[in-house]
Design a binder for these strands. Structure first.
Length: 429
RNA sequence: GCAGACGUCGCUUAGCCUGGUAUAGCGCCGGAUUUGAAAUCCGGUGUCCUAGUGACUCGGGAGUUCAAAUCUCUCCGUCUGCGCCA
């Protein structure tokens, strides 16, 4: 959510941003109109309250001096004030509610470096890492590999839960855990604090961190308790300090979250999504930074560097792209994606997303830090380190052997008792 | 789940019974003093607006009242004990 001061003092900046995104200005003008209306109604209400307060004071004084008739006289004069306050106040509240309902939907102001474009085709190449592996055989896609090795049981997942649920088993499950531990350790060494968050959040906290439309398309709701299963540990970790004033010496807060992530994936279909690429449940290791506003762009680069170093250490080939205006979403001001090369699929696909959300989430979460001038919104950033399901797909496709087995990235072997090759599930042999 | 206690400004705390508009300490900021620092003293320290002799703010919401931190209801959370439990 953008600071209301920006609508009052710098609306042209928001309009210019909407132009870059190619969306209408209408809501900006409506927000400004509602804001003016609210300020007027709020002022009028304050004036009547003021009247009421001074009358109340008069009554208190009259009673104190024993002048009961004087007290009753004042009382009769102000008898209807309560009703007027209630009426005007309700009008003011309604304006404010409408204003902020619209304001919640206005996207963040984009960084100038964000390329302009309609969709992901216009994302620009930032850097290329590693190179395509040469196979002397026809590379399989990951879905074929998990089927022939019995590493993922999709049909029984569908039976006991639903489509896009799965049982991961055998050596692949073992490597999944190794990936979690390796990635967490990698970031702990760089000064990040490991956090295991709640996997459910309440509505109020959740509205602070995400696009409102996600409630319809992404998050699972838990009835009758009104909780939402988290779509990523970014959400609880960022909301962790909502409604707090943070002492400047506590910044930057650097966290590495590990959690299961739950996503409805409404509307996502297609043959290319078979297997574990796009599923309702997966594990993700996530980086989070909460920092001074003037330091967030440095931290954004640092998060990218961490992700790049981590993926380099896994020995994988991928590229980094700078996400364009049309592919950006509501919350981030700038976003890099890492796209891993999938030889079986023959394309680069998204495995990491690295965002600077500036003060957008902090404004919604009322998350501020103390300065000499007053309390100011902090900046929040997040980046995937590893989403294990997708990293496993990249490892399987890039490290596959002719017989369908998969070699384990060297850095993961110590976490797997030295195991070098993922073997077929023994019950299949 | 049951019973009891509790939730006050960044932190700690007084006020609640008996309604009259939040007390003190710590921390932080500014000033005085000092060669400098410490100590001491003075002032400030949340949110909103049309910036005032202004409004709001005591876990959230609602109610009673001219007036609610204070009384009532309700929800949330914390602690203690009991119960259940990986």
């Amino acid at each position: 959510m953008l600071d209301i001061a920006m609508f009052r003092e710098n609306a042209d900046m928001i309009r210019a941003d909407h132009d870059r995104r190619g969306i209408s200005h209408d809501s900006i003008d409506e927000i400004i109109r509602l804001d003016e209306e609210w300020r007027k109604a709020q002022y009028d209400t304050d004036q009547i309250r003021r009247e009421r307060n001074s009358a109340a004071k008069g009554i208190a004084e009259a009673k104190k001096s024993g002048d009961i008739s004087r007290a009753e006289e004042i009382l009769s004069e102000v008898a209807d004030l309560g009703e007027r306050i209630a009426e005007l106040g309700a009008m003011a509240d309604e304006c404010l509610r409408k204003r902020d309902e619209l304001r919640m939907r206005v996207p963040n102001i984009l960084h100038p470096d964000v390329p302009v474009g309609e969709d992901d085709q216009k994302n620009t190449l930032h850097s290329l890492h590693g190179s395509k592996s040469e196979f002397e055989f026809e590379a399989r896609n990951h879905n074929e590999l998990i089927e022939m090795n019995g590493w993922v049981d999709q049909s029984r997942g569908a039976k006991v839960a639903g489509s896009r649920f799965y049982f991961m088993q055998g050596d692949l499950a073992r490597m999944e855990m190794a990936l979690q531990q390796f990635s967490a350790d990698f970031l702990i060494k760089r000064g990040y604090t490991l956090v295991q968050p709640p996997l459910m959040m309440n509505r109020d906290a959740y509205e602070g961190v995400t696009d409102l439309s996600d409630f319809e398309t992404v998050m699972y709701g838990i009835e009758p308790d009104n909780y939402y299963l988290i779509a990523t540990s970014e959400h609880p970790l960022t909301a962790m300090r909502m409604d707090e004033i943070i002492e400047p010496n506590e910044l930057p807060v650097k966290l590495v979250g590990v959690s299961q992530c739950f996503r409805r994936e409404v509307g996502a279909h297609g043959l290319s999504d078979r297997g574990i690429w796009r599923v309702h449940q997966f594990t993700k290791i996530e980086q989070i930074v909460v920092c001074h506003p003037e330091e967030s762009w440095n931290h954004h680069e640092e998060l990218l560097e961490n992700a790049v170093d981590l993926w380099d250490s896994l020995g994988l080939h991928y590229r980094v792209v700078n996400i364009c205006t049309g592919d950006m979403g509501t919350v981030a001001a700038k976003k890099y994606d890492l796209e891993a090369w999938l030889p079986g699929a023959g394309s680069y696909k998204e495995v990491v997303s690295c965002s600077n959300c500036t003060d957008y989430q902090a404004n919604r979460l009322r998350m501020r830090y103390r300065t000499k001038e007053g309390n100011e919104a902090v900046h929040t950033l997040n980046s995937t380190a590893v989403a294990t399901s997708r990293a496993l797909v990249a490892i399987m496709e890039q490290n596959q052997l002719e017989d369908g087995r998969v070699s384990v990235p060297e850095v993961l072997r110590p976490y797997m008792g030295g195991q070098e090759i993922l073997e077929k599930l023994s019950s299949l042999q």
